[in-house]
């Protein structure tokens, strides 16, 4: 919004999850918040720009078709007449100064957006790990991931989502599991028993991106929130089964399970 309207980022207020502001929505799922929500914002900004051009035409005394908007400035084609976004926004609310009854005052718009298709982010995650055959302990040595999320709005946040997703997926693959006893009592009811992944369980990630604009939304963006969490469990388990030489292992691949799986590993038998 800042770059689209040419206004400082500090002038943009972000309101999270307020149903008083957004009357209708379907929540966040399928990594759709960015692709759907930001497309709706983009559509609303189209309306803002169109309305602001009408205001600018009055203020700059030109015909609406001659108004151009670029880098936060309204200009009249072929002249040096100009006004910035802020002053036009103010004029929109004090319309009595220039406007008869032709234009409704105000510069407030909303837009709804229902995408024509899903977004299809794609990527490859490569997990390299070592198994200590004596204990079954799995150590992840290296993680290389390249994802295509289309156009990226905030690279820092997107990369952070990938990092967190990988950690969550590694937890699912190696450590986490809700366990109940025979009476139905949850045994893993605290972090003394439920194993969350810790920093020491994870390597430094090597994360990259390619950009292929998504055709099904105006910003060309794709979902990124689930990519790391979806890619990482199969990457970890494939690496383990590759090391073992067989596929007889279930998640979470705890050290005891891996140790037992090593006993029937052809690689181990070959080594002996």
């Amino acid at each position: 919004m800042s770059s689209r309207l040419g206004i400082p980022i500090d002038n943009v207020s972000i309101v999270h999850g307020d149903t008083d502001k957004v009357q209708m929505g379907m929540g966040t799922y399928g990594s759709r918040s960015g692709a759907v929500g930001m497309a709706a914002i983009s559509k609303a900004l189209d309306k803002i720009e169109a309305k602001a051009k009408k205001v600018a035409a009055h203020v700059l005394e030109a015909s609406e078709g001659d108004i151009e908007f670029k880098d936060g400035k309204f200009t009249v084609k072929g002249t040096d007449k100009a006004a910035d976004f802020g002053s036009i926004a103010l004029q929109a609310y004090i319309a009595h100064k220039f406007n008869g009854q032709e234009l409704e005052p105000g510069l407030k718009e909303s837009a709804f957006w229902d995408p024509t298709n899903f977004t299809f982010p794609a990527g490859v995650h490569i997990c390299e790990l070592e198994i200590d055959p004596a204990t079954g302990v799995v150590t992840i040595d290296r993680w290389t991931a390249v994802d295509d999320f289309g156009n990226v709005i905030n690279p820092l946040i997107v990369e952070g989502q990938v990092h967190g997703g990988i950690a969550q997926g590694v937890g699912q693959a190696l450590l986490e599991g809700a366990v109940y006893d025979a009476e139905g009592q949850l045994i893993t009811a605290s972090y003394m028993d439920y194993t969350m992944p810790r920093a020491q369980d994870l390597p430094s990630y090597n994360v990259g991106m390619t950009v292929t604009a998504c055709p099904s939304n105006p910003l060309g963006i794709k979902g990124c929130g689930e990519a790391g969490a979806i890619a990482s469990p199969p990457a970890v388990i494939n690496a383990i089964t590759n090391a073992l030489g067989h596929e007889n292992i279930t998640m979470p691949a705890t050290s005891e399970k891996v140790w037992r799986a090593v006993q029937s590993s052809a690689h181990k038998q070959a080594a002996e």
């Binding site: 204990t135 366990v179 045994i187 893993t188 028993d193 194993t195 705890t254 050290s255 005891e256 140790w259």
Partner: peptide, 12 residues
Amino acid sequence: DIHGSAEYRAHL
């Protein structure tokens, strides 16, 4: 326990 059977502990 869930983190290691008696057999696994004996081995460890």
